[in-house]
Each structure stands twice: as C-alpha cells, then as structure tokens.
C-alpha cells in the first residue's frame, strides 16, 4: 500500500477542545495517521475535535469516507466534530456528499473554537 502523504499535529487549545492540523493529502492511505491523531486527542480528554484544513492539499472520495467513519467514532463517544479552514472547493465537496449536514464547518479556527464553547 502506498505511503500516506498526510501529516497531523494535535494541539489542545482548552481542556475540552483539541485541534487536529491536517497537512497534505487525505486519501484512503491516511486512515492510520488520522485515527492515531484522533486517538491521541481523545486520550488527552478532548470532547470537541476540530479538524483544521488550512494546509489540506488534496482530498479524494476515500478521504471523505474517512471523515464519515471518524464522525461515527466521535458520535459514539458523545464528542463533537467541527472543521475549519476548508477552501471553497472542499466546502462544495462537503455539500455534494452531504457531510455539511453533520459536521459544522467554520472559516477560521477561532470561529470553530467559539462555536465549540457556545
């Protein structure tokens, strides 16, 4: 299987909120990288996970599938999943795949944190 072209960084911004910086390509091969980052954030006590897509270079349909399965995990543990920094193109993809109906999308990280705290 090809190597994932995705790097993640987990930042805890409050006791309850963690930001996952997504950098590179979100494809099927990024499954483990994304899951490991989510697990790290969750183990650290995060109740809200914000995916920061500021440095997302590319996402295909398998990447969207990963977000769906991540959302299921988040819902199962009564956490919340939000996103920020999506380009207009990927906002359109969220609309096409109807992910926007289940995942809150915000322009900036500050907006997403504010929404998480409200």
């Amino acid at each position: 299987m090809p190597q994932p072209q995705l790097a993640t960084n987990v930042r805890k911004v409050t006791d309850d909120i963690a930001v996952l910086d997504i950098e590179g390509e979100l494809t099927a091969f990024a499954d483990k990288t994304l899951t490991d980052a989510y697990t790290l954030a969750t183990d650290d006590g995060a109740r809200v996970i914000i995916l920061n897509f500021d440095n997302l270079q590319y996402m295909n349909s398998s990447g969207i599938g990963l977000l769906v399965t991540l959302l299921v995990r988040v819902n199962r543990t009564k956490q919340r999943l939000l996103t920020c920094g999506l380009s207009d193109h990927y906002k359109t993809i969220f609309e096409l795949t109807r992910l926007n109906e289940a995942i809150g999308t915000y322009e900036t990280e500050a907006d997403a944190i504010q929404a998480a705290q409200s």
């Binding site: 090809p2 099927a28 349909s61 096409l96 795949t97």
Partner: peptide, 29 residues
C-alpha cells in the same frame, strides 16, 4: 461524484436500497 485515474465513486440517489457510495480504486500492492 468523483473520478480520477486510479479511482471513481458512485453515490446513490434517494430510494435506492442503500444510502451511501461505492468507491472503485486500484493501487500497487
């Protein structure tokens, strides 16, 4: 809904037996 050189995805319409998508892909393994 998606197609490139090594994959493509079909998404269902309302009423279809299942709600979701099928991704057809290929890679060196």
């Amino acid at each position: 809904v998606y197609a490139d050189d090594t994959s493509f995805t079909l998404m269902t319409t309302q009423g279809h037996p299942f709600s979701g998508w099928v991704t057809f892909s290929s890679y060196e393994a």
